[in-house]
Amino acid sequence: MFTTRWGRLFSGNKDKFSGALSFSSGLKDQWLSIPNGSDSARQKKKINQLMNLSLQYSPYSYWFANITLRAPIADTSKYTTDFRYSFGYDDWHANTLSLVYSNYGDNRLFPSGNKRRTYFEQGAFTLAWKFSLPKSIERHLLIQQGDSLVCQTGYSWIPRYYSLADNDLRSNKNVFLGGCGYTFKQHFFVRATAFWFPDSAQQQPWNGDYSYSFGYAGYTPGSFSVQYANYSGTRYPGRSSSNAKFREGTISLIWFLPF
């Protein structure tokens, strides 16, 4: 539920084919590199607003393959359209194991110059275990009957990653994660995940110390979901380059397609 930025968008949906159309927007303007040709781009300061189309195929049990196509609301060209994808096994119930590959890198439908469409080796392989807390502890944390609290611990391995300090690619990035998600009234949720980098030099400025999200999710086809998420560059209080302000996050309105 918590290994990807979407928080497993289709968790709880047992259909073989699932889809969602969403609008996401940052809460403050930022400098963005906007490709405007096969080998050119320009810098512009604006709020990053995107339309996203996510499609998922689950052929059997909890095996799945997911792709999300993303295009900016403004300054649109074929070179600005990108995509993210993931696949693997991910049972969203407690006390289950998941193994997921996900790639949120510089994936382009129409890559510029000599760039590749995707860099598979820069994606993350995540092995995780979801579990429920002991009843003696859980009963003191649940607000009302019917609420649920599921936690997760896991490990991610990235074969190749970009190091800002070295301005080059490096190998074998390791990240440990742990977090919990609370759902109340079957739709409202709060999730938080902490990350630990055994080699602190591997943590880049955009790699957060933690991530969190909250919102409302309908899950069923034809329903809507709205959520706020903050996962990029967050830092614990007292750490250098602290960037955990609320306006650094993104708000999304999601419509689960009725098929």
Rank of each mutant, 00 (worst) to 15 (best):
residue 1 M to N: 04
residue 2 F to W: 05
residue 9 L to Q: 02
residue 10 F to Q: 01
residue 20 A to Y: 03
residue 21 L to V: 11
residue 21 L to S: 02
residue 23 F to S: 04
residue 25 S to H: 03
residue 26 G to N: 05
residue 36 N to T: 08
residue 36 N to F: 09
residue 37 G to D: 08
residue 37 G to C: 04
residue 40 S to A: 07
residue 47 I to E: 10
residue 47 I to G: 07
residue 53 L to T: 04
residue 58 S to L: 00
residue 59 P to M: 00
residue 59 P to K: 00
residue 63 W to F: 11
residue 63 W to L: 07
residue 63 W to A: 08
residue 64 F to L: 02
residue 66 N to S: 02
residue 68 T to A: 01
residue 73 I to D: 15
residue 78 K to V: 13
residue 79 Y to F: 09
residue 82 D to Q: 01
residue 83 F to N: 00
residue 100 V to T: 06
residue 100 V to P: 04
residue 116 R to G: 11
residue 116 R to I: 15
residue 117 R to W: 06
residue 121 E to A: 03
residue 124 A to C: 03
residue 127 L to D: 07
residue 127 L to V: 13
residue 132 S to M: 04
residue 135 K to C: 10
residue 135 K to T: 15
residue 137 I to R: 01
residue 142 L to G: 04
residue 143 I to V: 13
residue 148 S to I: 10
residue 150 V to D: 04
residue 150 V to K: 02
residue 151 C to H: 00
residue 152 Q to I: 09
residue 152 Q to K: 01
residue 158 I to L: 05
residue 159 P to C: 05
residue 162 Y to E: 11
residue 163 S to F: 06
residue 169 L to Y: 12
residue 176 F to Q: 09
residue 183 T to G: 09
residue 186 Q to C: 08
residue 194 A to D: 12
residue 196 W to S: 13
residue 196 W to Y: 10
residue 198 P to M: 03
residue 201 A to R: 04
residue 206 W to P: 13
residue 209 D to G: 08
residue 213 S to T: 07
residue 214 F to Y: 11
residue 218 G to S: 05
residue 219 Y to H: 05
residue 222 G to R: 01
residue 224 F to Y: 12
residue 225 S to I: 01
residue 227 Q to I: 07
residue 238 G to K: 00
residue 240 S to Y: 08
residue 240 S to N: 12
residue 245 K to M: 15
residue 249 G to E: 08
residue 249 G to P: 13
residue 258 P to C: 06
